[in-house]
Amino acid sequence: MSKTPVTPVQVTGTVLTTRRVDAYHALTVVAPGIVERFRPGHFVGVAVGGPGTSMLTRRAFSVHDVKPDYGGTVEFVFTAGGPGTTWLAERRARDTLDLVGPLGRPFPLPRDPVTCVLVGGEYGSAMLFAVADALQRRGCRVDFVLGAASADRVFGALRARRMGETTTLTTEDGSLGMRGRVTDVLPGVIADVRADAVYACGPMETLRGVTAVAVEFDIPVQVAVEERMACGIGVCMTCVLPVIGDDGVTRMVRACVEGPVFRGERVRFDDVGTIPFDALGAPGGGTRHAG
C-alpha cells in the first residue's frame, strides 16, 4: 500500500482525439507531467466551460489510459449528462483543456502473482485496464466481470476479452452476456478462478454488492468510489463518505484525497449519504450546532 502521495500538477493540455464508444465519450489529451506521475486508480480534475466559465467546479474523471506519445497523453471516459460534460463532449482535436492531476490514492497492488477479479459497472470499467496491465506485469492472473444496464453501456468488453483470462459480461436487459448484475455472477467467477483479490469500480450500489460478495469469500476487495466532487484536491470537503479507519473509528473522509480507492469492507456503504451516529464528530457526540 502506497503512503507516499504523488504531487499533482496543473497543465493546459491539448485535445488529441475524441471518440464515441457506444453510449460514452472518450477524450485523449496531451498532458505531460500527469503521465509520468500516473498510477492505476488515479483521476484527473477537468475544468469545463473554457475561460470565463460560469461552471466553477472541476469534473473528476478516472484515467482510462496513459500513453507516452506526444510527451504523454491521458484518456478519460464520460457520459454527456449535465452542461459541463456536454461541453466536454463538444471538444475537438486541438482544443485546450485545463487538467489537474494525477489525483487521489491509487490502487495498491499485490506483491505476489495472485489471481485478481476486476469488476466494472457502467463506465467504471474504464479505469480497470490500467490496473489489469499493472497486475499482469507482476505476473498476476486477471479475470474481468463487466456489467451495465444495456449492451451499449458496457465499457471495454473487447479489451477485457483480450486482456483477461476470462471475461464475464452482464446486462440488466440481457442484450449482452448474462442477464442480471455483476454481483449475480461474481460468486461463480470467484469460485471458478479461485480468486485471491477483487478490484472494483462503478456506481456505489455495485461496489456495495461486490464488497458483500468478497467479504463472503473472505478475500480482499479494493473499490474505487465515484463521489461527486467540486475541487478534486481536498479543499472543498464535499465528497465525503463514512469509512472505518485502522483504529476502528468511522470518519467522514474525502473521496478525492483519502480515496477514491478504499478497502471495500472499510466503507460503510449502508451509511453513504448520512453521518453515522458513531462517526467521529457526529451530531450529539460533541457540539450540536450546525454551521
Binding site: 464535499t238 465528497c239 449519504g273 467521529l280 464528530g281
Partner: peptide
C-alpha cells in the same frame, strides 16, 4: 470548533450559475 465535527450529510454541493 471545540470538538471534532463530522459535518453535514452528502450531497453537500450543487453547482449553480456562476456559483456554488
Amino acid at each position: 470548533t471545540m470538538a471534532p465535527r463530522a459535518g453535514r450529510p452528502t450531497p453537500r454541493m450543487a453547482e449553480t450559475p456562476s456559483g456554488l
